[in-house]
């Protein structure tokens, strides 16, 4: 028995190798776009801002809740009065004026998405953002919206609370009541 055991152990290992040799290779070749691994729908890439197509403005109102809850303090935001609200084109009184995320600092935890009350921020499927400068990943409002729109179009994204967060103005009677 003692003489045979090394041979048996060796042969068992060799059989595994032979079996694997006959398998079809499953290598995904990263830089080639069509040969990459597919991302799952829930994949959390860098955060991006969503776009409300009904009234052609961002969902974000600049309420700052994501800025406060971010564990790495990688965001900053500013709000302004919404010009479309004055013309009765939108329900949102305030709208985002500037939004900056330092994606080099972001740790992709998804807390900003959880705390957002307006469905305004989502984890996009963007993950390739290598840059040559340390601060080159400080992205502004326009770039964040571009990322968000790409994500929306890819997944057919709809807001989780469409009734509450739609920007379509309410019927005149209610808006008089509220004003």
């Amino acid at each position: 028995m003692k003489i045979h055991s090394p041979v048996v152990g060796f042969m068992n290992g060799l059989m595994v190798t032979i079996r694997s040799t006959l398998r079809r290779p499953v290598t995904a070749e990263y830089p080639a776009v069509e040969k990459r691994l597919a991302l799952s729908n829930r994949y959390m890439g860098f955060p991006a801002l969503t776009w409300d197509y009904d009234v052609e403005e961002p969902y974000c109102t600049g309420c700052m809740v994501c800025v406060r809850e971010c564990p790495t303090q990688c965001m900053s935001a500013q709000m302004k009065d919404n010009p479309k609200h004055e013309k009765d084109l939108s329900r949102r009184r305030k709208i985002i004026e500037s939004f900056e995320i330092n994606l080099g600092r972001c740790i992709l935890c998804g807390i900003c998405v959880d705390v957002c009350n307006f469905d305004a921020i989502e984890m996009s499927h963007e993950y390739e953002l290598s840059k040559y400068q340390r601060n080159a990943n400080r992205v502004g409002l326009n770039q964040l919206l571009d990322m968000g729109v790409a994500y929306q179009n890819k997944l057919g994204w709809t807001p989780k609370q469409p009734q509450k967060n739609s920007g379509v103005p309410l019927p005149p009677k209610q808006s008089e009541d509220s004003s």
């Binding site: 055991s5 090394p6 048996v8 152990g9 060796f10 068992n12 290992g13 059989m15 595994v16 190798t17 079996r19």
Partner: peptide, 13 residues
């Protein structure tokens, strides 16, 4: 498979 590949390999032992 992992078990039979390495665990009883004489050199590993």
């Amino acid at each position: 498979e992992c078990d039979s590949l390495l665990s009883q390999n004489e050199m590993f032992l």
